[in-house]
């Protein structure tokens, strides 16, 4: 009897998790409640968490903003070119994504440098060339360090785990973030773990389907 209950439980779990994965990706981050006047009455509106406005230079010395990414979903990460630890792994995983979605015009990759003083446009250009990737699909961004940190921590950080609250902690945690066309965060993955990146690639397909027709 016990075993039977357990089995049923497991099966329910399976069913639930399966249906969830084909359904829709979650919208992450804390949404805001704002008051609004409608016909003299105050109503409460929920505004979902979105990526704030930004303006940084890419490896071609072109400005990249939310408008540049309009109509695209993208994967964002934070790195620096001289990073001795996890960045090469992150980049090899991003290259996997880059190659897997070769013909997918609705997907971009966006890598913010957290060491912009060293990572000038020239350094980023050389880096991108050595990785063999094109700025049509993959932006490497540099700019004011404080602005990059601010954007990272206020816009992209949606899972504030304890150990990530240290300065640069989240930004240097190896996270990949999946952003939709409405600038909302739809997934967070560990970019140093191959299986998580496999999940991300599946989620990219799920998200792209939301925009079909």
């Amino acid at each position: 009897m016990r075993v039977c209950n357990l089995l049923i439980g497991v099966m329910m779990l399976l069913v639930v998790s399966c249906t969830q994965s084909v359904e829709r990706l979650p919208v992450m981050g804390r949404s805001q409640l704002v008051e609004r006047e409608v016909n003299g009455k105050t109503v409460l509106d929920t505004i979902p968490h979105t990526i704030a406005d930004f303006k940084f230079l890419n490896q071609d010395s072109s400005w990249v903003t939310n408008q540049t990414l309009e109509g695209k979903i993208y994967v964002a990460d934070f790195f620096f070119t001289s990073c001795p630890s996890i960045c090469p792994i992150m980049k090899s995983q991003l290259i996997r994504i880059y190659k897997e979605f070769e013909g997918e015009d609705d997907l971009r990759l966006v890598s913010y440098s957290i060491d912009p003083q060293f990572d000038t446009v020239g350094v980023l250009r050389e880096y991108a060339q050595r990785l063999g990737v094109s700025s049509d699909r993959w932006h490497f961004l540099t700019g004011d360090q404080d602005e990059i940190y601010e954007l990272g921590e206020s816009s992209y950080m949606v899972t504030a785990a304890e150990d990530e609250s240290a300065p640069g902690g989240f930004l240097h945690s190896g996270a990949f973030l999946l952003i939709d066309k409405e600038r909302r965060v739809r997934g967070v993955y560990d970019g140093t773990v191959e299986e998580q990146v496999n999940t991300l690639m599946g989620d990219i397909r799920v998200l792209l389907k939301e925009y079909v027709n």
Partner: peptide, 15 residues
């Protein structure tokens, strides 16, 4: 391995 890869394969023209 972080840089040179699990199989010593390196990373494109970077490593």
């Amino acid at each position: 391995a972080n840089c040179h890869g699990q199989e010593g394969e390196g990373l494109e023209r970077l490593i």
